[in-house]
């Protein structure tokens, strides 16, 4: 078996004295889509923060493509090919669409190419290129955020609650895009409350409860065995 794109080994992390991650182990094979499910407060978003470098681990290691990246800064990871789309609207509301896209070139792709890719996937963004991102609808903002994932051709894409506060139709549309990104060979780790939507596009699934990954496997298995957990029964 080849080296997994992401390997999390026995990671512990805490907010002050409250330990949130209590020994997380997770492997995302290269080129696959993994859905990270589980009830609120399970530590999913914290794990994403740890992987993206926004939060320090108290112990344990994070390997990206076989390289230990514990302690790296978010900006360094971003330039190495990790693309993180945090929860909420991950755009700069007081910049125009075009300026938002311009900043995406920090990850290493030339600005023209970013614009081309983004406008190719989402023509609506081109119509709004001079509009402030904060004045667009939630779905359009999320398209803009997804453009970064599309344009920067990342090695690993982290998605946190893409669906938050969006209408189901738009969520479906966005997950179609996620599917397209996955087709192009990008490895994806996504957190999602809409378990069904996420499982439909994923190759693997893992369930986090109480700061640990308690189960992982094929989407169907997880869906059957973990339905009650995912609905929050075991929280």
């Amino acid at each position: 078996m080849s080296v997994p794109i992401l390997e999390v080994v026995d990671v512990h992390a805490a907010y002050g004295r409250i330990e949130v991650l209590r020994g997380v182990d997770l492997r995302v094979p290269r080129g696959s889509v993994m859905a990270l499910l589980g009830p609120n407060g399970g530590g999913k978003s914290t794990l994403l923060k740890v992987i993206s470098g926004q939060m320090e681990v108290t112990s344990g290691d994070v390997h990206l493509g076989g390289v230990n990246v514990s302690g790296a800064k978010p900006a360094e990871l971003a330039r190495l090919g990790l693309c993180t789309i945090p929860e909420g609207r991950s755009v700069f509301p007081n910049l125009t669409v075009e300026e938002n896209l311009l900043l995406m070139s920090y990850a290493g792709v030339p600005a023209e190419q970013v614009l081309e890719t983004a406008f190719g996937y989402f023509p609506r963004l081109e119509q709004r290129r001079d509009q402030l991102a904060g004045t667009m609808s939630g779905g359009e903002q999320q398209m803009l955020a997804m453009s970064r994932a599309l344009a920067s051709d990342p090695a690993l894409l982290l998605l946190d609650e893409l669906s938050m506060g969006l209408a189901p139709l738009i969520v479906e549309e966005l997950y179609e895009t996620v599917g397209q990104i996955a087709q192009s060979g990008v490895s994806i780790l996504c957190i999602e409350q809409f378990a069904k939507t996420a499982l439909a596009v994923s190759d693997y699934a893992a369930v986090m409860v109480g700061g640990r990954v308690i189960a992982s496997g094929e989407p169907d298995e997880i869906n059957e065995s973990m339905a009650d957990v995912m609905l929050g029964g075991a929280a």
């Binding site: 993206s52 470098g53 926004q54 800064k73 978010p74 900006a75 971003a78 330039r79 693309c83 993180t84 789309i85 945090p86 991950s90 755009v91 700069f92 509301p93 007081n94 910049l95 300026e99 311009l102 900043l103 995406m104 070139s105 920090y106 990850a107 290493g108 600005a111 970064r148």
Partner: peptide, 23 residues
């Protein structure tokens, strides 16, 4: 310029700017 745009962006959300790869 990109650095100037990043200056304005960092007020909006400096954590996000890091995730973009800016400093």
């Amino acid at each position: 310029t990109r650095i100037g745009t990043a200056m304005r962006a960092s007020v909006d959300n400096h954590q996000l700017l890091q995730l973009y790869g800016g400093n």
